[in-house]
Computed example of a mutant assay.
Amino acid sequence: MRNRTVGINIRVTVTEKKKVTMLAKKCGLSLSEYLRQRALGYEPGGHPPKEAFYVLDKLDEIAENCSVRDGVAINAQTDRMRDLLIGGN
């Protein structure tokens, strides 16, 4: 883990802080981590809704009732979609 010991202080309006805090929360990051990533040129992505993973789980259940060949193909696609949702390649 990095040893972060130096702080950077900035002044913002109440509205700006609310907006940045909301953006950080949407990405599943702390305010500090969100600001750090943005300052270093990264564009943090948001978290997909839980419902998206629920749908993929249901598709996996459907695949269990298909032929082995079709089930394997469906599972491969749902795995690929999961990877895309969580930022994998």
Rank of each mutant, 00 (worst) to 15 (best):
Q37S: 02
Q77R: 14
G45D: 04
R69L: 14
R4M: 12
K26M: 10
A73M: 14
K26Y: 10
E43I: 03
M1V: 08
S30P: 04
K26A: 12
V20G: 02
A24R: 03
V14T: 11
N65Q: 15
N65C: 12
R4S: 11
R82W: 02
V20P: 00
A76Q: 15
D60G: 06
V68C: 04
Y34H: 01
Q37A: 05
K58W: 10
L29P: 00
R69D: 10
R11I: 15
V72G: 02
K25Y: 00
R2V: 05
L56R: 01
V68Y: 12
E61D: 14
E43Y: 02
N89L: 14
N75A: 10
L29E: 04
D79M: 13
T5D: 04
P49C: 06
T13A: 06
N65F: 06
S32I: 01
L85E: 07
A76W: 01
L29C: 05
G46T: 12
M22K: 13
E43M: 05
E61N: 11
Y54E: 15
L40P: 00
D83T: 00
G41M: 04
V20M: 12
K25F: 01
E51M: 06
A63D: 10
L59S: 03
V20D: 01
N3V: 02
P49N: 05
L40D: 08
A76D: 08
E33L: 09
K25I: 03
P49H: 13
V6N: 14
V68D: 08
Y54S: 07
N75I: 09
I62K: 15
Q37W: 01
R38F: 00
V14G: 11
A63I: 00
E43D: 13
T5S: 09
N75Q: 15
P49Y: 07
N3W: 08
P44F: 01
V14N: 07
Q37Y: 08
M1K: 08
T21M: 15
N3M: 08
V20Q: 04
D60M: 05
G41C: 04
A52K: 13
E51K: 11
M81T: 01
I10R: 09
R11N: 10
T15H: 02
I86H: 04
E33V: 02
V12F: 09
L59T: 00
R36W: 02
K19A: 04
G41A: 09
A39D: 02
I62S: 09
N89K: 09
Y54C: 03
E64I: 07
L31C: 03
E61Q: 13
Y42C: 01
G28H: 12
N9S: 14
M22L: 13
K19H: 05
R69A: 12
L59V: 06
K25C: 01
N89I: 07
R69Q: 12
F53V: 06
G87M: 13
E51N: 03
